[in-house]
Design a protein around this nucleic acid. Sequence first.
DNA 1: TGCAACCGATTGCAAAATGCAAGCAGAGGA
DNA 2: TCCTCTGCTTGCATTTTGCAATCGGTTGCA
Lengths: 173, 173
Amino acid sequence: MTLDRRSGCPINLSLEVFGDRWSLIILRDMIFGGRRHFRELLNGSMEGIASNILADRLKRLMELGMLTKADDPSHKQKAIYSLTEMAITLVPILAHLGAWGRVWLPTSEELSIRAELLEKGGPPMWEKFMAELRHEHLGTPLDTAPGPSVRATLRAAYEAVVAEKALNASPAG
Amino acid sequence: MTLDRRSGCPINLSLEVFGDRWSLIILRDMIFGGRRHFRELLNGSMEGIASNILADRLKRLMELGMLTKADDPSHKQKAIYSLTEMAITLVPILAHLGAWGRVWLPTSEELSIRAELLEKGGPPMWEKFMAELRHEHLGTPLDTAPGPSVRATLRAAYEAVVAEKALNASPAG
DNA sequence: TGCAACCGATTGCAAAATGCAAGCAGAGGA
DNA sequence: TCCTCTGCTTGCATTTTGCAATCGGTTGCA
């Protein structure tokens, strides 16, 4: 996959990589949702991507160097997708994007709690998260302090909000 | 203009606002290039946007609250577009996007010097720039230290690189 | 052994978005 | 007067997207 290269502007080229409706959604689900398989990405994303679009974007992201694909040893038909360093370094951009959307757009509380946490954690939290992703996807040794993983922290916060909402909505008050 | 609202995820909603090929390019030209008129945006952007697409995106960005439009007092046919606070707060995202593109994509040296400067300047420089934009587009009083404007600094850096390249390419060496 | 569920895609087709060139009416300048 | 410039629209071809069905193969289970 070669970029159109409408211009050499960094912002323009970045948009040529993930300036469409789906590429960044896929990366979001891999980064924050831990999805690694085609079917997980297909059924797991709330936005409901079509299978042909997903296949096309995965191919494109691989050709651009954002993803790699490998056989899953546990299942001959399964492919496992991994993030490259190029994709992992999108974490700060996704954090900023989430923070901006949380301020200006009608986000749902459950889904924006993670953006809020990521914003509060700031660059140190992003770095820890990126180290975790490098460990999972690139096999890099994990030399940070143990503690709960950032992904687990985000998921716990999400579930807490969902539980609280369910409680408030329950007949028993 | 109402969002599709495929989901309430902040990242998804942000993409619904400017996750296309042109919206962010237009905002980039207004923010960094100082373009305020339709014709400036049409002819000024290196990427060559079509006039119907430009008209559509300006309308859409206005409906989403990113831009406002007003009559230009100097010319009855001219319209002047202004950034809203919502758009001005994209500056950190654009800075990150430029930094990422500079690292991972085949950017041209002239066009990436500004991203480099913005990256080196960091959040303080972004804040100064945003204050300048608020002054130009929203009429907010400018209370920062005077000095050269960030836009002037970025432009000067760009022209210095262009001049240097011309010198190196000249027959006289 | 049979069979349903699941695997990563692919196909065909309709709908929407985009790109391109030309043109519009009105305003300004000479 | 005539030419240029203003923001923006129109018609049409091309490309991209969305949707549903399907493919050949694998797996787990009865």
